[in-house]
Design a binder for these strands. Structure first.
Lengths: 250, 250
DNA sequence: TAAGATTTGTTCGTATGTATC
DNA sequence: GGATACATACGAACAAATCTT
């Protein structure tokens, strides 16, 4: 009946059902919120048991492709994959890849200045105010390690928020994703407590200057500030990483 | 018993079990191939039914985190997320995002020259030969539309392969992912049949010159060639997209 | 507020398939 | 080939969530 008798690794029934449903969604160009057949219908349509259908739905749910509700009018619906979900799934991949700080900064150095330049003169007053608020939130020296960590995370949140404002979804996603990885690294490996206060303070002022350049619509100045900011941030993280390594060794 | 009585959207039991297993893998620093408890053990450990455990495993399987085998010595194993799987999951996200050709090229213009420069003098003879083979495969003019499409796909495969060779997994992944999206666009929207042969031929020669520069270890020349190549490729795709739009309108 | 209808959520028992020894 | 150990799949029953009246 089915032509899948070759050597391929014999996908299980739930996987095949999930693939058929996904193909059905694409073929019919279904959009967010559109309803899928009910469990009972799928049982009949695919000739499988209830458990198999449910496993198939879980597979699609895990990818963010469908959402499910109980009760009358309930069922499964096409659910647009959120950026948050996509970042989680991608983080799973890089969990095994052992990225170095300089790997991430090679990409940041190339992309963040481009983002800054492309946003000059394009942000609303509210967006500029929000960015300024984040940058100024950590103006005062940190009182303890906990506060230092929060400041470090906030400075990354600045970049993530800037990325959210991009019209270019791909560029915005990549930059926000890197900010997320760096946040994880910061918290997990305790890469805060700036070992070089002068460098850290310069980075903070970069962000405030950047908001000004964006407000004034000076694209090339924004690009230059961000380029300089990236160099400083990389140097800072490298010093911190080196310190962590020294702590491990001796 | 469980403290999850707040307003959060009540994650279902399989989802919670999947999260617990994932946390357990991270906490124990399990690596590819390590074995997870059997179905029966999990039923006992989490106090849920077999169906629930199976749904949880499907969730993890869909993310590429575990693989499952039947038979004695079988069970569930930690399975490194492959780059291919990660690209598929990410493509699901951008399926709903309506990226434009210029969105993609804004990122390519920033990253591909960087990749080229960083690979100069770093590739083996075999790798260089493979790239040269891809580039020369479409030297002859295409005989029909089918062959034109294959040439266009091959020219994108050149970039994907170059990305695979990068030591920087993040940079390599992003570039290979963009090549994949562009391939989908090319095939799905029929963006082949170069409307400007001169431009297309120049792109082909760029790739051959690039291989030479990489072999000789001339990083800045490689960067410059790639930068020029990106400009030409973007112009070409914009002409093609415009042609597709005209076809739709009139 | 309460009852009923509808749909997913979960469990259990049983049977089958598959790979290893 | 047979025994063993494991996942895979089915079906029936009941539980829980949510909408309607």
């Amino acid at each position: 009946m089915d032509g899948t008798k070759g050597k391929p690794p014999r996908r299980s029934r739930p996987v095949r059902v999930a693939e058929e449903i996904k193909g059905w969604v694409v073929a019919h160009d279904l959009r967010r919120g559109d309803k899928l057949p009910s469990e009972t219908e799928m049982i009949a349509r695919f000739g499988v048991s209830k458990g198999t259908v449910r496993e198939a739905m879980r597979i699609l749910e895990a990818q963010g492709l469908v959402q499910t509700r109980t009760g009358p009018g309930g069922g499964s619906f096409v659910g647009e994959v959120t950026a948050e979900r996509a970042k989680e799934l991608l983080a799973n991949y890089f969990y095994f890849q052992e990225l170095s700080v300089s790997d991430i900064y090679q990409v940041r150095r190339a992309l963040e200045p481009e983002l800054a330049a492309s946003l000059a003169g394009k942000l609303s007053a509210a967006q500029l105010a929000e960015l300024q608020g984040i940058a100024e939130a950590y103006a005062a020296p940190a009182a303890d390690a906990e506060e230092e960590m929060q400041q470090h995370v906030a400075s990354l949140a600045f970049h993530a928020r800037l990325a959210d404002f991009s019209q270019n979804r791909l560029l915005g996603f990549i930059i926000a994703f890197m900010a997320r990885i760096l946040t994880d690294l910061t918290v997990y490996r305790r890469l805060y407590e700036p070992p070089n206060f002068e460098l850290w303070d310069r980075g903070r002022r970069h962000q405030i200057d950047l908001v000004e350049a964006l407000r004034a619509g000076r694209a090339e100045e924004a690009r230059a500030i961000m380029r300089s900011h990236m160099e400083g941030a990389e140097a800072l993280m490298n010093q911190q990483e080196a310190r962590v390594l020294r702590r491990f060794i001796g």
